[in-house]
């Protein structure tokens, strides 16, 4: 299953990347592959911006605006003017 195209905020700074491969390991959608000792985004449209890759990059080479992607939570945050995070009871 695929979601909307060209929306993922995932980027990798290949100057900082040492090719340790941790980002590729933790990605639950196999978005990243290691080749020539660097990380490459091979399936950007499969990215759900969970942030596992960025959290586990010790070089801070990976960046992504992460979140849970919960419409309910976003609407609630908009209405209450609070920070955009999932605060509903749905998970």
């Amino acid at each position: 299953m695929r979601y909307l195209k060209n929306v993922s905020t995932l980027t990798i700074d290949r100057k900082k990347c040492t090719g340790c491969g941790m980002c590729a390991v933790v990605c639950p959608h196999r978005v990243i592959k290691i080749a020539e000792r660097k990380a490459w985004i091979i399936e950007p449209d499969l990215c759900m911006e969970c942030g596992a890759c960025a959290v586990n990059c010790r070089e801070n080479a990976v960046s992504v605006k992460n979140g849970t992607g919960c419409a309910y939570g976003m609407i609630k945050a908009k209405l209450k003017g609070s920070s955009e995070e999932c605060e509903c009871d749905c998970c």
């Binding site: 299953m1 929306v7 499969l46 759900m48 605006k65 992460n66 992607g69 419409a71 609407i75 749905c90």
Partner: peptide, 16 residues
């Protein structure tokens, strides 16, 4: 979308 395992927040925001 909040229950699925493949929707990105950027996508949900765009859709909303």
């Amino acid at each position: 979308t909040g229950s699925t395992t493949f929707t990105s927040p950027s996508g949900v925001k765009k859709e909303m």
